[in-house]
Design a protein around this nucleic acid. Structure first.
Lengths: 340, 340
DNA sequence: TAACATTGTGCAAACGTTTACATGAACTAT
DNA sequence: ATAGTTCATGTAAACGTTTGCACAATGTTA
């Protein structure tokens, strides 16, 4: 059980004081170069490593970024988390992860924990529409970045995929492929991102001279089974769609399964697109066209936004609202260039 | 920017000292019940929340478990991480996540960071066979649990899936389904888990009167493309297999793709099983039989092992080597009860 | 009633930094 | 030679806990 060396040990070795050592190590201009060299050399010689806990206590701030997500093991979130980790690591920071389990109270509790841990910042994908508990973070002067499910009102900085654009791209792609009656599996309209996806769908239709038929818009949850049911409803219409653009890969998968079970050919008779580019989409038969949200990139940007803040001198009135360009990953489920 | 209340604030309010308040809050038997109640009440009234940073400095130990994995966004690891998080949260601990990127040096660096952060324990899935840098952890008297890719020699406590058993189960299942010539896509034999999977395959064959044909064992990496190539090799043998049990879902997927491309019927003409129960397996066509490693459970157990250690009075000579029972998830790719 | 144990609390140091303020030495300007 | 600057370092307090030791007040025993 080797005892760690401290700045005092270095000071003792050099017959100086901890203050000087501390200043030398942080490259304070008031310390002579000679002393700095001396300090750095003996620090190395003694195997000195700073104690972040002591620094955090003194500074009232840890070099930790807290991250709160609904579930760690959703591929979307784990990928964003990875991005955040890689970015903050560059600056000598670490991440502390919490799960909200989609529950507002658990989220509030996690916020308290992170505030108490004196984190330097909190990255958060909201569990619900209720963002009132975020005030605390701001009151404690802790940097806050919301991502994906962002807090429009309270959070100064936000990072999200451009859902409107993503959905627009997918819908436009179906139009370009010659599909005429394009349906939309919309997620819960209480949630921002799903509203935007529906808006993108509508905009693409309108701008390209397709009329909007409300019978073709089904509000559903993002489950496979819901996708199957919705597809059944749609295909039993007297004027059924020839394409489905879904706000979720899972409901798109359900639709795909239903069509296959009925012998409806994809993409020849019906085109399908999903949203999020879940890992499974590329392995489906046919592979599913989907909208990639560049999740790793999103995480890195979230990280960057923190350090942009930290570096600019406090007084922040410019808030960053970043929208990331999504990318349409075209696969077989929507590609029928043959018989356009 | 509300100032946090401290134990001294409580002490002042009650005309006593921080020492008494600290003891009262930690339910020290030397404090009278009357005082305890008084302290707890005013703590609540003043909105007191303990400062974990100060406690960590004083104790030389944070209520943090460090977790090091190759990549956060692999579904296996994100799921284990979730399990760890949920378990340690119960005890008022948090997790700090690092990535080794499969690199031994990055792993060693992360270990240093976590040691400096005075974490109470480190959970780690090894980046390489080299475990020499783990000594540091033990020397600093920090609890160490390795999981999945475990450190057999140095790490006192290990948690892993029973790879032998999982592979045995898959192979036995194929035998029970009446497959006669069962091939094995083996991962790199430098890695423990893949060696064990091959052993399970061999044992199942031997114990059930199947002879082992080394032509049917292909050592490959765990990529889709490698699976395709291996399947091609196998099916071009003059005496080709009628089943493939793979040590990886990805190479199993490759094999499945190859067979389909050649019009070979699954599971009628060839049975296929994978390993790890990746999320995509259930959505394949046909859905892929695979071995579930109960990753969430694995994470929870990892967490438990820490607190078992913390609770028993230090002197630990009994090391826990936990092997989790895997579960065979039977799906269509291996199920041909019809024409057994 | 003296000696002793028990109970509840206070005192003060320690964990390892950081930083406002003080100090002394050398240097510049008058 | 005196006052004012500048430079490099030292002093000491602070961050908020925890805990060994001391101590006074009470209760117990002989």
């Amino acid at each position: 059980m080797t005892k760690k060396t401290t700045i005092s040990d270095i000071a003792k070795a050099l017959n100086t004081t901890a203050a000087t050592v501390s200043r030398a190590l942080s490259d304070n201009p008031r310390i002579s170069d000679k002393t700095k060299k001396l300090v750095n050399d003996t620090a190395k010689a003694l195997g000195y490593a700073p104690n972040p806990v002591a620094a955090a206590l003194r500074n009232g701030r840890s070099k930790i970024i807290g991250v709160i997500v609904p579930y760690i093991d959703r591929s979307f979130f784990s990928s964003v988390i990875r991005g955040i980790e890689e970015e903050v690591k560059k600056h000598g920071y670490n991440i502390m992860i919490c799960q909200s389990l989609e529950d507002k109270d658990a989220e509030a509790e996690n916020i308290d924990i992170l505030i108490n841990a004196r984190v330097a910042g909190i990255a958060l994908s909201l569990a619900s529409n209720d963002e009132s508990h975020l005030k605390k973070i701001i009151n404690h002067n802790i940097a806050l970045v919301t991502f994906d499910r962002i807090a429009d009102n309270l959070a100064p900085h936000t990072v999200a995929a451009d859902d409107f654009e993503g959905s627009y791209l997918a819908t436009k792609h179906l139009i370009d492929q010659g599909y005429k009656r394009i349906a939309h599996l919309a997620g819960s309209q209480k949630i921002n991102i799903y509203r935007n996806r529906q808006r993108g769908y509508r905009a693409a239709l309108e701008e390209n001279g397709h009329e909007i038929d409300n019978d073709l818009i089904i509000s559903t949850n993002s489950k496979v089974i819901a996708g199957r049911e919705s597809a059944e409803t749609l295909l039993n219409l007297k004027n059924p769609p020839d394409a489905i653009t879904s706000a979720s890969d899972f409901s798109a998968l359900g639709a795909l399964q239903y069509c296959k079970s009925k012998g409806i050919k994809i993409p020849e008779e019906i085109g399908i697109t999903g949203f999020a580019n879940e890992p499974f989409t590329e392995y489906l038969e046919p592979s599913l066209t989907s909208v990639s949200q560049n999740t790793l990139e999103m995480g890195k940007i979230v990280g960057q936004v923190f350090f942009d803040q930290f570096n600019t001198e406090e007084q922040q009135t410019q808030y960053k609202k970043i929208l990331l360009k999504p990318e349409l990953i075209v696969r077989k489920s929507s590609l029928r260039t043959i018989n356009k």
